[in-house]
């Protein structure tokens, strides 16, 4: 405790407000929990070298996505890799409005608050965001976090659970019959992931007594 206090840096107000959100310990029902489903597009897969180009996120509350409560941001980055452009389609110049990392992360924290984060193979996106926060002298993300890849495996019938296949987002679309629209844009993938997430929850919740802790 003491050590923690000692180590505490002088964080900017935005991060302090974000941290303060976690102090309240409230127990919510699944239907009252706000899930923020997000995805990032990056210049590549190297957590240190590569940079986030855009973040897309939407919130799911009681099986409803409010389009007005969605998040989409593009970042100014010095790192640029032309070979990744064919995947995400974000040009170095382009006419998209772009912001600095600092501004992006402030807005993102303000958007996610203390809610539960959801993503497909979310470990990578979390790591990328954490790296970005560290570059900007902030601490780590504190949110609970769910991976649709893992949840999907849980939802499979017992007969198939020994199968250790790693399901890609495309596999999920295929198996859960989800239309692939705007694949490989951060917001598009976030929406697809959100729909997959809800379909998986419905499958896991056949007995109607699913709780958040069953998912962690």
């Amino acid at each position: 405790m003491f050590k923690w206090l000692f180590k505490r840096k002088n964080y900017p107000d935005s991060y302090k407000t974000y941290l303060a959100g976690f102090k309240k310990d409230e127990k919510k029902l699944l239907s009252e929990t706000r899930f923020v489903v997000f995805d990032t597009e990056t210049t590549g897969f190297d957590k240190i070298e590569d940079r986030i180009l855009s973040i897309g996120a939407i919130s799911v509350l009681n099986n409803t996505i409010n389009v007005s409560d969605s998040f989409e941001i593009y970042l100014k980055q010095d790192v640029f890799k032309s070979e990744s452009v064919k995947i995400h389609g974000i040009l170095k110049g382009g006419n998209l409005e772009k912001v600095s990392e600092k501004e992006a992360i402030e807005k993102f924290l303000d958007y996610i608050k203390n809610d539960v984060l959801v993503g497909h193979h979310v470990g990578f996106d979390m790591a990328m965001v954490d790296r970005m926060m560290r570059r900007n002298n902030l601490g780590k993300l504190k949110n609970l976090c769910l991976d649709t890849g893992v949840l999907f495996k849980m939802s499979k019938h017992l007969v198939y659970q020994e199968n250790l296949k790693n399901y890609s987002l495309d596999d999920l679309c295929e198996e859960l019959k989800i239309e692939k629209v705007d694949r490989h844009t951060a917001t598009g993938d976030a929406l697809i992931t959100a729909i997959a997430f809800q379909k998986i929850l419905a499958r896991l919740n056949k007995n109607k007594n699913l709780k958040l802790k069953d998912l962690l």
């Binding site: 897309g56 939407i58 389009v67 969605s70 989409e72 941001i73 593009y74 998209l96 409005e97 629209v181 705007d182 844009t185 917001t187 598009g188 929406l191």
Partner: peptide, 10 residues
Amino acid sequence: MKNSIAERIY
């Protein structure tokens, strides 16, 4: 702010 989802709904 750009809202791609709204565009798809449109």
